Deep mutational scan, measured.
Amino acid sequence: MALNTPQITPTKKITVRAIGEELPRGDYQRCPQCDMLFSLPEINSHQSAYCPRCQAKIRDGRDWSLTRLAAMAFTMLLLMPFAWGEPLLHIWLLGIRIDANVMQGIWQMTKQGDAITGSMVFFCVIGAPLILVTSIAYLWFGNRLGMNLRPVLLMLERLKEWVMLDIYLVGIGVASIKVQDYAHIQAGVGLFSFVALVILTTVTLSHLNVEELWERFYPQRPATRRDEKLRVCLGCHFTGYPDQRGRCPRCHIPLRLRRRHSLQKCWAALLASIVLLLPANLLPISIIYLNGGRQEDTILSGIMSLASSNIAVAGIVFIASILVPFTKVIVMFTLLLSIHFKCQQGLRTRILLLRMVTWIGRWSMLDLFVISLTMSLINRDQILAFTMGPAAFYFGAAVILTILAVEWLDSRLLWDAHESGNARFDD
């Protein structure tokens, strides 16, 4: 018995066209964080690309023209004298008006014999932002004059995390709450300039795509075929072959399989920071003279006294001054041990922890910024005066060393310790 099946006739004509040209192939790229070699397709503007294995951002879609970056830099340069030299806060102490600005706080630190601690604050609040705007201006002028731009481009990517104007702005709020127990506070004209400078700096850093600047100024022929001998440069993120001198053909720094002496430098910085954190938390970090009496505060006791007036601000200072430094030390110690013992479990967790400490590390400088600003506000000789204690130097040095330890660690070593050939990683 035959089955009668109805015929289905399409209502619209289906047209099949042959592909007349070869589909576009992607360029081969190595991930600078996990060293995976993959094919990167062509990316349009405002599109980002991520590593298929570790999800690290390979290409950032946010990109401004150099002219727009230069305009932002010149605007920031105009704001800087007002943000640093004009009063941020006014207080009335014992019937006398006192003005506080950024430069005055750094000068008070240096004047009291601790120039190293003052230079830490100076670099993060004044030096690094000033280098940022002058570097962008150098790129703008240098591109037109045919100057060598490689050193500036190499420095810009590392400079971003040292620009800490946003953290200093939080420190202004913390210092205001600490001082309000002794005097009446009012915002100064410099505060508005400083807030504007923070906003412009944040926007500029978020749109400063150094890798795209490398592509514009020093374009290189990408690798179009897969080759395990391809290496990625950690300076400019170019994937290719080393030249005859073993250097990256684009930025001219040595092109090595792994960062040289990464573990040794990381261990040295980490152990030194552990040693410095002990006096930083045991010795007094601030000293207040009130009517001839002397009151010393460690980091913890200062947080407890701050909690009596504002528990939320005390929580912020606790996280930045105690929780973050010790968390960074514990995480980095764990990561280094996992590399030495070739741990194969929990790779995803370790990668996330490394990215976390990379982002939060700079916030530990908050305590030094609060001390710097408070020193310029309260300084009335023996009637009422505020000065920093010996722990300030140890704390600042420990924070900087932990930042350097994270920067010096080559994250690809975590993958080397893991089993080879993993296309995915999980716990």
Rank of each mutant, 00 (worst) to 15 (best):
A423P: 06
F74A: 08
V324S: 04
A223Q: 14
D416V: 12
I126E: 03
V133D: 01
T201P: 06
Q264I: 04
G421M: 05
K12W: 05
P242C: 14
L290M: 09
M109I: 10
D243Q: 09
C236S: 01
S262C: 10
L130F: 11
A268L: 04
G105M: 01
F425Q: 14
D166R: 15
M72T: 08
A320F: 15
R258W: 07
G146C: 05
N148P: 07
E86F: 02
P249K: 13
L414G: 08
V16S: 08
T402E: 02
Q112W: 05
A272Y: 02
A397W: 11
A312H: 14
F369W: 09
T204E: 07
F393L: 13
G421L: 11
Q295A: 12
C51I: 00
L200R: 00
H46V: 06
R17K: 07
H418S: 14
I330N: 08
R260G: 09
A417Q: 08
S321R: 02
E407A: 12
I383P: 00
C248M: 00
T11E: 07
Y241E: 13
M164T: 05
R158Q: 15
E212T: 15
V102N: 04
A175D: 01
L208K: 11
L139R: 01
F386S: 00
P390F: 07
V152N: 07
I322N: 13
I116V: 11
C266V: 12
G240Q: 11
G235H: 07
H207D: 08
A175W: 01
E211D: 14
A70T: 12
H340K: 10
A280T: 11
N143Q: 10
D367K: 00
K111N: 11
Y394Q: 02
L234M: 11
G246Y: 13
G85L: 04
K178S: 02
H46T: 07
I371C: 01
N310R: 15
A269P: 08
A115C: 05
I383Y: 03
L88V: 03
T402V: 08
Y241P: 10
I351M: 13
V275A: 11
L300D: 03
A312K: 15
P325L: 01
L366G: 15
H261M: 11
D416H: 10
F238I: 07
P81M: 04
L77S: 13
Q33E: 10
E86S: 06
V16D: 07
L377S: 02
C233H: 01
R53I: 07
L283I: 13
C124T: 11
V121A: 11
A320P: 01
S420R: 07
G190Q: 01
Q47A: 06
W107F: 15
L323M: 13
K342E: 11
I285L: 02
F82E: 06
F341A: 11
L208S: 12
G346T: 14
I172K: 03
C248P: 00
V170H: 11
D410A: 00
S364T: 08
R97L: 02
K111L: 03
G26A: 05
K160I: 08
I253A: 08
Q33F: 10
L335W: 03
I126C: 11
T358P: 04
N143V: 15
Q47T: 05
L132C: 05
N310F: 03
H340R: 12
V174N: 05
T201I: 11
G190R: 02
A83F: 02
Q55F: 08
E161Q: 15
N379A: 06
I172A: 06
G188Q: 12
I167C: 06
R380I: 02
Y218W: 11
S411F: 06
K342Y: 13
V163A: 04
V313T: 12
I400V: 10
P87Y: 07
V324T: 07
L277D: 09
M76R: 02
P151L: 02
L94R: 00
D367E: 01
I19D: 05
A268G: 09
I199M: 11
A2Y: 04
M304C: 09
T202L: 15
D27N: 10
V275T: 13
Q180N: 11
V313F: 04
R30V: 07
L323D: 01
I126V: 14
A71G: 05
T11Y: 06
E228C: 13
W92G: 02
F194T: 08
R231V: 14
Q220W: 09
M304G: 14
M120D: 02
I136L: 11
D60A: 04
I106Q: 04
T298L: 12
Q112I: 07
T239E: 01
I136E: 04
F369P: 00
V275K: 06
V121G: 08
L271I: 14
M1W: 00
D381V: 01
E212W: 13
P32T: 10
A391F: 03
M76Y: 03
A392M: 03
L255R: 05
Q55D: 09
R17M: 08
Y138N: 02
T298N: 12
A2E: 04
V324G: 10
M120P: 02
A307P: 02
S309W: 15
F123N: 04
I96P: 03
L165N: 11
I136K: 13
A115P: 12
R250L: 12
